[in-house]
Design a protein around this nucleic acid. Sequence first.
DNA 1: CTGAAAGCGCTAACAC
DNA 2: GTGTTAGCGCTTTCAG
Lengths: 341, 341
Amino acid sequence: MTNDRDQPAVAPPTLLAVAQRAKVSRSTASRVINGSPQVTEEAIRAVTNAIAELNYVPNRVARSLARRSTQTIAMVIPQHTSKFFADPYFAAVIQGAALHVATTDYTLTLMIESDDDPDKTRRFLEGGNVDGALILSHFSRDAEYISLSRLLPVVFGVRPLTTDDGPYYVVDVDNAEAAALPTRHLVERGRTRVAMIGAPQSMSAGRDRREGWQTTLALAGLDEGPFEEGDFTPAGGAAAMERLLGQGRPIDGLVAASAQMAYGAMGVLKERGIAVPADIAVATIDNNFFSTSAGPPLTSVDLNTDTKGAVMAQTLLRIIAGETVERTTTIPIDLIERDST
Amino acid sequence: MTNDRDQPAVAPPTLLAVAQRAKVSRSTASRVINGSPQVTEEAIRAVTNAIAELNYVPNRVARSLARRSTQTIAMVIPQHTSKFFADPYFAAVIQGAALHVATTDYTLTLMIESDDDPDKTRRFLEGGNVDGALILSHFSRDAEYISLSRLLPVVFGVRPLTTDDGPYYVVDVDNAEAAALPTRHLVERGRTRVAMIGAPQSMSAGRDRREGWQTTLALAGLDEGPFEEGDFTPAGGAAAMERLLGQGRPIDGLVAASAQMAYGAMGVLKERGIAVPADIAVATIDNNFFSTSAGPPLTSVDLNTDTKGAVMAQTLLRIIAGETVERTTTIPIDLIERDST
DNA sequence: CTGAAAGCGCTAACAC
DNA sequence: GTGTTAGCGCTTTCAG
């Protein structure tokens, strides 16, 4: 005895069982299960009943093998943020994707890229174990995934940072616009020295956001404000704020590339007795718990991240279904005004 | 043309291809792939080379069909919290489980129970599509899952609320202790009128936490303090705090059953000019962003939720492997003292 | 419209 | 130790 429970006591019913009970062949049973039009009403009824009586559920594995399609898509998440879920971004994307997939016959496999064995994930994907993949990492391994996209439908959640162009798809917000929106908002409220705490410039989103901020200031005829880079954490935001202040240049407005960083920056401001929004008006990209719970609550750009997850999944399933899909889908964003500006 | 890309351009290499290249039979190739001891060094070398040259990856689907095991486990999450990830709890459990699974040859499928078609999930699980399941829902459907556990290894993340006993496993913290810890802490600091904002009493965790608080006060010879129930959200915590204050009974200590609720309650206290910890000392169960970002930061019980996720996965895989496992595994918890007490 | 037959790619007795 | 032979449960030509 290996286990104190009698594990797979009963084997689930098979198609054959259903067919026999309905007194038809497996082919016919299979046809009604798959909604083929060429079956008698009568056959449909018989099989349907048999299925209900036996409580039959098709074996996905066998079906996949025969169909040569897995009915499974993967969501690939970078591990390097070992605490990836501390970032509400991932949680939101996954949630959106999972909810969408739940409405289909597909299944969502969550894969965390192992730092130890980075090839494990790639091999898994290349091995024909999934019908497509949703890629959420934003860093250097992009190129590798692009080559993957030649083997398998792939949808990226961020624009890859490479000039290489494979047949890949991207679903993302317009990051330049995401930065332009709060910057413009600040400028319209009369701020003329708008600084930015940006995201890493090694990410396409980081570059795009910086550019959106720069361009907006330039269009308004304003000088480019001071810029410091953060790492998406509150601590990183606080450090960037210190450096910004350390530059000695006057600041009356601040755009943060993420709510976590804005949250960290707010702590520094409060500590130094700098009033928000009186002395410095603050607006941030990304609307989540960090932006709403800062004091005062932050004017934020809602990136609709859960929608993004859902659209990523939907896009991938469309591609798999053979539909022609736009290479790039842009998720709409909204500016939400709060007391910080 | 259905798609502008030539999708499955190249079919992945099969075992047969590897075998031929290595000049052995498929059985032998299969044996070395699965690490059978009864193969020549030479055969191993030949097959290994062939695999490398062909970049072969076993087809999981075919393997599953032959082995009658899917190498897949499911994580089932209730949808009723349509925003389930807004609760850091789920994110943490999923993260822990995913990270553990990533170290094995298993795959993790994320399933959200659909409110529309609640049977979809159950049928999927019963249909032999996974080797086991991790159940995270805590409500009424428990009983149903317990019956599921007769068909398939199942590990619950919370003690089911039922007297029915099937062969199921539970991995959870000791919820009574989770409440006793902060209550005792408050009592030791001289608080004698300790109120509680509890979790719904329809959940086993909610009952256990309430009981832990009650028992601790009784043991200390103190009167039972006022109790109000919240719904795990900051708003619910705030409302509960209002009701608590509305009872008119004196309070000098507060235990919250979740950090979100504590966070909401803190807002009410600040609004009313009630000082923390001077007037009321506050301690909460669960340590996450909500507890650290309250003002002042909250003394909290760290539930090690990511560890819980990992242990859940590990437990399930052990059961699947046929090992004998404890029916109940308790995850250790830690009290973290901060400025709120 | 339906059934028979041939696999999908791999594993697992069972002989040699 | 290794090859041969059957399938795993389902889909899918191909006849009829």
